[in-house]
Design a protein around this nucleic acid. Structure first.
Lengths: 133, 133
DNA sequence: TATTGTTATACTCTATAACTATA
DNA sequence: TATAGTTATAGAGTATAACAATA
C-alpha cells in the first residue's frame, strides 16, 4: 500500500519533470547528479555515485554523457581518480533547470496545500533513512 | 527535490518489500495485480492494467506468468476478452503476502510516528491525482 | 469501426562479474 | 592489498508499432 502509493506518486512527479525540465534536455538522474556536483564540486566519481545511490559501474556512462554534452568535466586528482566539476555551460544549464523545477515545486505546494509539501519531504526522508538503517 | 525524495523513499520501501514479501516469490507489480483481481474479480485484462497504470501490451506477459504460477486464471467472457480471477492457490498466496505486508506497514508506522503513515498516504494520493488531472 | 489481446522490438535503468591501473 | 574507474553483460521495466480476431 505505502509502496504502491509512493510508486504512483513518484511516476506522476517524474512525468511532470520530463514534460517541464525535460524540455531543456535533462533527465531526472542527470539533474540530481549536477545538483550534487554543484553543491560539492571536486567529489570523486564514486563519491557522487554513492551520494545518489547509483552504482559506480553504472555511473561511468552517465558521466561520459554529461561530459559529451559539455556540462560536466573530469579533472584528474591522481592517476586513478577523477574529481567532477560543472563547466560554465553546465552551471547555466543547471540554473535553467532549477528555475523550471521551482515552478513545479510551487505546483506541488498548491496541490497539497500550505506547508504540506515540506511535511511530505520530511516524512519521505525519515522513511528512507529509517529503512536504510 | 520532491521527485528525488519520492524516488529514494520508494526504492527503500520496495527493497523492504523484496526482502520480506519477496521471500514467498512475489514481486511488487505482481502483488498489486493480485490485489486488484481479489478486490474486483472478473475484470478484463485491459481494465486491470489500466487500474494499475500498466500498458495492456506489457500486461500480457505478467498475466502469462501469474497463470503459469497457478495464481491467476483467464476465463473467456466472449471470444476476444478474458476475465481475470484468482485461483484458490492465488488466494492463499495473496493472504500470505498481505500478512507479511501488514508487518511492513507497521514498521513504517513505527518509523513515522503515530498516525503519520495515513497522512503520508493521503498526501501521496492527492499529489498523484492532482498531477494526473 | 472500435476493442481486446497479442507479438515484436527497442530503450532505459539496474545488477553482477571481471578486468586494469594505480594508491 | 585495497581502491577508482572501467567494460561487458544480463535482467527488469517500460514504450511504440503493427497485427489478428472479434464486438
Amino acid at each position: 500500500m505505502t509502496g504502491y502509493a509512493l510508486r504512483r506518486a513518484q511516476i506522476a512527479v517524474f512525468e511532470g519533470f520530463r514534460r517541464t525540465v525535460g524540455k531543456i534536455g535533462l533527465r531526472p538522474a542527470q539533474f540530481s547528479v549536477m545538483i550534487v556536483i554543484h553543491r560539492t564540486p571536486g567529489l570523486k566519481q564514486t563519491e557522487v555515485a554513492n551520494a545518489l545511490g547509483i552504482q559506480r559501474t553504472n555511473f561511468v556512462a552517465m558521466v561520459n554523457e554529461l561530459e559529451r554534452l559539455g556540462w560536466v568535466e573530469r579533472r584528474a586528482l591522481d592517476r586513478r581518480s577523477h574529481a567532477l566539476h560543472l563547466t560554465r555551460a553546465g552551471q547555466g544549464k543547471l540554473s535553467e533547470a532549477m528555475a523550471i523545477e521551482r515552478k513545479q515545486e510551487a505546483l506541488y505546494d498548491k496541490i497539497l496545500g500550505p506547508g504540506e509539501r515540506l511535511k511530505l519531504l520530511d516524512m519521505l526522508r525519515r522513511l528512507q533513512v529509517g529503512l536504510e538503517a
